[in-house]
Amino acid sequence: MEITRLSPDDEVGCAEAVAVDSAGWKLDRPEMLQHTPKSFANMLRYGWDMVPPQAYLAREEGIPVGLLTIEVPRYDNTNQTWLDVKVHPDHRGRGIGSELLAYGENMTRELGRDVVGFGGLDLPKAEAFAARHGFEQKAIEVNRRQDLAGLDWDIVQRLYDEAVAASTAYELVTLTGALPDDMLEGMVAVTESINDAPKDDLDIEDDVFTPERLRAYEEAQEKSDRTLYRVIARAKETGELAGHTVVAVEQERPHIGEQHDTAVSRDHRGHRLGALLKSAMLLRLREAEPALTQIDTWNAESNNHMIGINEQLNYKIVSRFLIYQKSV
């Protein structure tokens, strides 16, 4: 088996990688959002915030059989890597996944890192694979999808009206794209509030945010052809930023949106700001993105507060992911 690193400029290789990836999803969980060759190449160019992952395609006699993706954090948790292993269903059961995983673990050691993270669908075969390779389950992440076509907009409006009544000390700011310079510092503190979300038993440090990282995130999303929509809560009396929510809408597939972040600063909780932000965002997207039909979000299964809001807004479970780690 030949394992080669993919370049985002390799159109054929990226298309082959997506074919391997999609074949697995179509068998195991066809509802999952899948890459296009263009979005896969953009991931390899820009990543989430200009720290792109590395991808390696496994071929046997020129036929793509497996895919390894390696996330190498640069802003925080710099002792770790996160691996994703996919094997084409026609070639499973022959040790390809194990060989790709070993390749990723060796790269982790070569990088001077000592913790490997790995995620897999909540399926018996995925659990068995993780256990066989010495991984310990640390958390459960749940992917939910909002069906906008089936959304009861009266419920959204009522949730918004109730939240407005409970948050009279705050105003909303709506933005598209990059933050204004005068909001950047305040948004660092708001974004850091995501560290209060449950980590369960994961061996991870808090995410570290800086103005430069927020700008890198905006740059990566813009270059990846995603439109960022933001709703920000601001205290009327002090002007302090109190919370935000961000949704990215694909330009290549404008019916698809992704919930990137919703966070409320510690000092401003208890005023229904989470519900206010989420419902205001939906009302905005209804006008701004008429082709949008679905929004995907991810939460720790233990994040009961945010899940409660999402369930009011017609989010349904697509999949559960078991998150594993081990030392190498």
Score class of each variant (00 low, 15 high):
residue 135 F to N: 03
residue 144 R to K: 14
residue 144 R to M: 15
residue 142 V to P: 12
residue 140 I to Q: 02
residue 161 D to F: 13
residue 144 R to V: 08
residue 127 E to Q: 10
residue 138 K to E: 09
residue 143 N to I: 15
residue 126 A to W: 08
residue 125 K to E: 15
residue 169 A to T: 04
residue 129 F to E: 02
residue 173 V to P: 01
residue 127 E to V: 15
residue 165 A to G: 07
residue 128 A to R: 09
residue 170 Y to P: 03
residue 141 E to V: 10
residue 155 I to K: 12
residue 165 A to E: 12
residue 133 H to V: 09
residue 135 F to M: 02
residue 153 W to P: 00
residue 160 Y to V: 05
residue 173 V to Q: 09
residue 144 R to W: 03
residue 156 V to A: 08
residue 166 A to L: 02
residue 171 E to N: 12
residue 138 K to I: 11
residue 153 W to E: 07
residue 151 L to F: 00
residue 162 E to R: 10
residue 141 E to W: 14
residue 124 P to D: 01
residue 156 V to N: 01
residue 155 I to A: 00
residue 135 F to W: 00
residue 140 I to A: 07
residue 149 A to C: 13
residue 171 E to S: 13
residue 138 K to T: 11
residue 134 G to V: 04
residue 130 A to M: 07
residue 150 G to Q: 00
residue 138 K to R: 14
residue 166 A to G: 00
residue 153 W to R: 02
residue 174 T to G: 10
residue 158 R to V: 09
residue 153 W to H: 08
residue 130 A to N: 07
residue 166 A to H: 02
residue 145 R to T: 10
residue 148 L to R: 06
residue 167 S to V: 04
residue 155 I to F: 00
residue 164 V to P: 06
residue 129 F to A: 04
residue 171 E to H: 10
residue 147 D to T: 06
residue 169 A to Y: 01
residue 126 A to C: 08
residue 152 D to F: 06
residue 158 R to A: 15
residue 139 A to S: 15
residue 148 L to P: 03
residue 165 A to Y: 05
residue 144 R to G: 04
residue 137 Q to K: 15
residue 129 F to T: 02
residue 161 D to K: 11
residue 129 F to W: 04
residue 124 P to I: 02
residue 151 L to H: 01
residue 161 D to G: 10
residue 171 E to M: 05
residue 128 A to Y: 09
residue 136 E to A: 06
residue 125 K to H: 13
residue 154 D to R: 07
residue 126 A to E: 10
residue 154 D to M: 05
residue 174 T to F: 10
residue 140 I to F: 02
residue 144 R to I: 05
